[in-house]
Design a protein around this nucleic acid. Structure first.
Lengths: 135, 135
DNA sequence: CGGTATCCAGGAAGATACTG
DNA sequence: CAGTATCTTCCTGGATACCG
């Protein structure tokens, strides 16, 4: 979403450029990133990996409660987006290390900002929810 | 995500993280905010309302393609979190105006930062996805 | 105009069992 | 250790119809 822009109507209609730029295509693509951030475990893993590479079970322990397959899926999603690398060492038993890519590190900045905002305002949000739910 | 209070069932989405050791309670609460941001339409509506209050159908037109009920749900969720206000004018036909609260305005900052990051890095992410999907 | 009420498809999250 | 394979629940998003 062009974050300062106004929608103009059906994207198939035409493309007369208005006073500001709203590109529906960009909008859709940005939302795939927001969706990734909104996933339950993705951000937790990203923040964890900021401190350095970790092995599968170390991440699992650190996230405390994630189902094994959910962690597999989460890591695969992050790897697919180029946010995390997966390195297999041919040892016995096998050892797999996950690490943030530069892209992943770069994402962790804005995500951290959002997280800090949330920490700051969660009491206010939770009060609003309670008030709303009372009716 | 269902942002209604405490789910206890073991098989619910967004099951509670155990209260003990490694995951601080704040983590869980932050993730409810991230989940809201990850919803398909929430951020779009927030960004739209930054420029000023809008009526229901104006938002609907601007978001271009949202189903009416999805907009109702989205707005209700934002209202519940105290991010948006809903004002009904007793006119004929009825007129309902939605506006960002100060809390909503405040959230739009970090969200915009994340959106700009996404715009900047989407090509890189999409290339990574294509590469990954080739195998 | 601005909603509810239904119903539906798809997928996210999870529990559990098995494997190289 | 680090995964797959299966099966289940139920949430998200959406389509459609009706209402005050």
């Amino acid at each position: 979403m062009k974050l300062t822009a106004k929608s103009k109507g059906p994207s198939r209609a035409r493309a007369p450029v208005p006073d500001d730029v709203h590109v529906p295509g960009d909008c859709r693509r940005v939302s795939t990133v927001l969706a990734r951030v909104g996933e339950k475990w993705s951000v937790l893993v990203i923040m964890l990996l900021r401190r350095g590479p970790e092995r599968f079970n170390a991440i699992k322990r650190a996230t405390n409660g994630i189902a094994q397959q959910m962690l597999t899926r989460t890591l695969k999603g992050l790897e697919r987006d180029g946010l995390v690398t997966r390195t297999v060492f041919a040892t016995v038993p096998p050892q797999v290390e996950y690490a943030l890519t530069p892209l992943g590190h770069s994402l962790s900045g804005p995500v951290q900002a959002l997280g800090l905002w949330a920490l700051d305002h969660i009491p206010q949000i939770e009060r609003a929810r309670e008030r709303f739910d009372e009716e």
